[in-house]
């Protein structure tokens, strides 16, 4: 990945996730806990270094023909490497005390999760732009990524995923790149289903 490409991903995916996350709560609360996201060039370079290490390790361990630069890993794996890079760089800062809301305490995991989903979203927009402008416009107008509904008594899907990231990291469970990439695939697929569900499908009898 070129540095220019990473910079676009940093701006469109990471910075947007950080800003949208901070905006979930009112300014008064953000100020009370000095809740901030580090968008500096230094932090960007740290995430890039982490990402490069993660990606090289993933390629080396899991992929056929890893020495061939023509063999490129897919966006879901790239998203997983980026997600772990953000967790390890911990861009969110805040005053941690007994009264700090738990969602602020886990906000580094939230920033990492939302950044990686933004990556999937960005590349889905790119795909639709190439193959179907109706879908592209529909996704744009939707404005928010869709997630599967959970049943009563359970966390919303996103909150559950953020908690899972936090639990694994706190309990020192190794990050599972391939499973995380699989999750990103299914989030993308779910959104494709939502966007494309109104598409007219030819009756089977006309196709056989």
């Amino acid at each position: 990945m070129k540095t220019e490409t990473f910079n676009v991903i940093w701006t469109e995916c990471f910075e947007k996730a950080g800003i949208d996350l901070l905006n979930v709560f009112p300014e008064q609360l953000r100020e009370k806990y000095k809740w901030r996201c580090d968008f500096s060039d230094k932090k960007r370079d740290e995430v890039l270094d982490n990402y490069t290490q993660n990606r090289n390790s993933l390629r080396k361990n899991f992929f056929y023909g890893q020495d061939n630069p023509e063999k490129l890993i897919d966006i879901h794996k790239i998203g997983a490497c980026f997600e772990k890079a953000v967790i390890d760089a911990a861009p969110m800062s805040f005053i941690a005390d007994e009264k700090t809301p738990w969602i602020i305490n886990v906000s580094n995991y939230a920033a990492a999760f939302y950044s990686s989903v933004n990556m999937i979203s960005f590349f889905l927009l790119a795909y639709y732009r190439k193959v179907n402008m109706d879908y592209y416009n529909k996704y744009k107008e939707q404005k928010i990524v869709s997630y599967p509904a959970t049943t009563i008594g359970h966390d919303p899907y996103t909150i559950g995923r953020i908690k899972a990231l936090a639990l694994d990291d706190i309990m020192e469970v190794d990050f599972d790149y391939l499973s995380y990439a699989d999750m990103l695939f299914w989030i993308e697929h779910y959104n494709r289903q939502v966007i494309e569900s109104s598409v007219f499908v030819k009756p089977m009898e006309s196709r056989i």
């Binding site: 990945m1 070129k2 220019e4 490409t5 676009v8 991903i9 469109e12 995916c13 947007k16 996730a17 949208d20 996350l21 905006n23 979930v24 490129l72 966006i75 790239i78 999760f113 939302y114 950044s115 989903v117 933004n118 979203s121 960005f122 590349f123 927009l125 790119a126 732009r129 190439k130 996704y139 744009k140 939707q142 404005k143 928010i144 990524v145 997630y147 919303p156 996103t158």
Partner: peptide, 20 residues
């Protein structure tokens, strides 16, 4: 190539938010 994909998206932005 993600470089090619991102280059083709140079004149556009991420209009969709992952934060619900």
């Amino acid at each position: 190539s993600v470089d090619d994909i991102v280059e083709n998206m140079a004149d556009t932005k991420l209009y969709v938010s992952s934060v619900d």
